[in-house]
């Protein structure tokens, strides 16, 4: 009887391992993990967080600014296409991060409004704003170049980053209105 019970438990355990991969933030971060950054950020709810608070999940991230009229809504739309392309069973493992490159204007309230306007699911999407120095640092970590331009705009690179649970960037989608297939494959690969 005991033996059968034990076999069942073992079977259950093995089976669960096969259906669901467990992601977690490693105790020792890889050297190239973006979670080595110690900067503090405000979310759209006004909460103070560090980037490593997002560890342990797969994150799909991009830099935006909410006053942006052309590229940013499109990059947000590209992220939403990635979200829509995810397998249902993976949805709970994948989070979306929008980091503002316009710390002066993008207050948490502005970010909240942007999120609501774009119907972002705030249980899985987070918008972040920080101070100018930290924005410059994260832009450099993410290889994003930006420059203030006329009429209060910002010219910037459009890059979507796939960040693994330990904080390592495993894929970058460069440009706008790119088919999400390759990025989705990069996410799938993390389950192998």
């Amino acid at each position: 009887m005991n033996k059968i019970f034990f076999a069942c438990v073992t079977l259950l355990f093995v089976a669960s391992c096969h259906t669901k991969k467990e992601f977690k933030l490693p105790d020792v971060l890889p050297e190239n993990s973006i979670y080595n950054l110690t900067s503090e950020w405000k979310t759209q709810e006004g909460e103070t967080v560090q980037l490593k608070n997002f560890g342990g999940k797969i994150n799909v991230a991009a830099m935006i600014f909410t006053a942006c009229r052309s590229a940013c809504p499109r990059i947000t739309a590209d992220l939403q296409r990635i979200d829509a392309g995810l397998k249902n069973k993976h949805k709970s493992d994948v989070r979306f991060l929008l980091i503002s490159m316009d710390p002066e204007r993008d207050t948490p309230e502005k970010l909240k409004k942007f999120a609501l306007d774009h119907k972002l699911d705030l249980s899985r999407w987070t918008l972040l704003t920080g101070n100018a120095d930290d924005v410059m640092e994260i832009a450099n970590v993410l290889d994003v170049r930006f420059k203030a331009s006329k009429e209060n705009g910002i010219d910037h690179s459009n890059i979507i980053h796939v960040i693994d649970p330990s904080g390592v960037i495993v894929h970058q989608q460069v440009g706008l209105a790119i088919e999400p297939d390759e990025t989705l494959r990069a996410i799938e690969k993390l389950y192998e």
Binding site: M136, R145, K147, D155, H156, S157
Partner: peptide, 19 residues
């Protein structure tokens, strides 16, 4: 320089940007 990354190059900026 602090904002050396403000110099954008073609591969990374918007292709339709006049920058």
């Amino acid at each position: 320089t602090q904002d050396f990354n403000s110099a954008l190059t073609s591969g990374e900026s918007r292709s339709d940007s006049s920058l």
